[in-house]
Lab assay of single mutants.
Amino acid sequence: SLEGTEKASWLGEQPQFWSKTQVLDWISYQVEKNKYDASAIDFSRCDMDGATLCNCALEELRLVFGPLGDQLHAQLRDLTSS
């Protein structure tokens, strides 16, 4: 749920159509929501749009996002199937 936050830029759009900015917004949101240590994320490797993100295998997401990769992968699957 997104109570208390302004409507996120990526909400209501299919992930494969996200811009690079929307991807970063979504990642930041997941980091906050999961109380994850953002210093463990290599943000220089997050410079990708939604289509690229959706094409990432779980292993790739783990490389870039560490333990949060599993969470991101699961969330993406939910978003693309809805």
Rank of each mutant, 00 (worst) to 15 (best):
S1C: 05
S1K: 14
S1Y: 06
L2M: 15
L2E: 12
L2Q: 14
L2V: 04
L2W: 04
L2S: 11
L2F: 10
E3P: 13
E3H: 05
E3S: 11
T5M: 07
T5G: 06
E6N: 11
E6I: 10
K7L: 14
K7D: 13
K7M: 11
A8H: 08
S9Q: 12
S9W: 05
S9D: 09
W10Y: 04
W10K: 03
W10N: 06
W10D: 01
L11K: 12
L11E: 14
L11I: 12
L11N: 06
G12H: 15
G12N: 15
G12S: 14
E13F: 04
Q14V: 06
Q14K: 09
P15A: 03
P15N: 01
P15G: 00
P15D: 00
Q16E: 13
Q16I: 14
Q16K: 15
Q16V: 04
F17T: 07
F17V: 08
F17P: 00
F17M: 08
W18E: 00
W18H: 00
W18V: 00
W18P: 00
S19R: 04
K20I: 03
K20W: 02
T21K: 07
T21C: 04
T21L: 14
Q22E: 11
Q22G: 02
Q22V: 06
Q22P: 00
V23C: 03
V23P: 00
V23E: 01
V23S: 03
V23L: 03
L24A: 13
L24R: 05
L24W: 03
W26Y: 04
W26T: 00
W26L: 01
I27S: 00
I27V: 06
I27L: 14
I27Q: 00
S28K: 12
S28G: 13
S28M: 08
S28W: 08
Y29T: 08
Q30L: 05
Q30K: 03
E32P: 02
E32H: 12
E32D: 10
E32F: 02
K33R: 08
K33P: 02
K33E: 14
K33N: 15
K33G: 07
K33D: 07
K33W: 10
N34R: 08
N34F: 13
N34T: 08
K35W: 09
K35N: 14
K35L: 12
K35Y: 12
K35P: 10
Y36W: 13
Y36T: 15
Y36F: 07
Y36V: 13
Y36P: 05
D37V: 06
D37Q: 08
D37E: 10
D37C: 13
D37N: 12
A38F: 07
A38W: 10
S39E: 14
S39Q: 08
S39G: 13
S39D: 09
I41C: 11
I41M: 03
I41L: 15
D42V: 02
D42E: 14
D42Q: 11
F43W: 04
F43D: 04
F43A: 09
S44W: 06
S44R: 11
S44V: 06
S44T: 11
S44K: 12
S44I: 14
S44A: 09
R45Q: 14
R45A: 10
C46F: 14
C46H: 05
C46A: 12
C46K: 05
M48W: 11
M48G: 00
M48R: 01
D49M: 01
D49A: 04
G50P: 00
G50M: 01
A51E: 13
A51L: 09
A51G: 12
A51P: 12
A51H: 14
T52V: 09
T52H: 06
T52M: 05
L53H: 01
L53T: 01
C54A: 10
C54I: 12
C54K: 05
N55C: 11
N55Q: 11
N55P: 00
N55H: 03
N55V: 07
C56F: 02
C56M: 06
C56T: 11
C56H: 04
C56G: 04
A57L: 10
A57G: 13
A57Q: 10
A57S: 14
A57H: 04
L58V: 08
L58H: 07
E59K: 04
E60S: 05
E60I: 03
E60P: 01
E60M: 08
L61E: 01
L61F: 15
L61K: 02
L61A: 05
R62T: 04
R62Q: 15
L63I: 13
L63H: 03
L63N: 09
V64K: 15
F65L: 06
G66T: 00
G66K: 01
P67R: 12
P67K: 07
P67I: 07
P67G: 11
L68I: 11
G69H: 01
G69L: 01
G69V: 02
G69D: 00
D70V: 07
D70N: 11
D70S: 08
D70R: 04
Q71H: 07
L72G: 00
L72A: 01
H73K: 07
H73M: 09
H73T: 02
H73V: 07
H73R: 07
A74I: 01
Q75D: 15
Q75I: 12
Q75R: 10
L76C: 02
L76Y: 00
L76M: 12
R77Y: 01
R77I: 15
R77G: 11
D78I: 10
L79F: 13
L79I: 02
L79E: 11
T80W: 05
T80G: 04
T80Q: 15
S81T: 15
S81G: 11
S82N: 15
S82I: 10
S82R: 10
S82F: 14
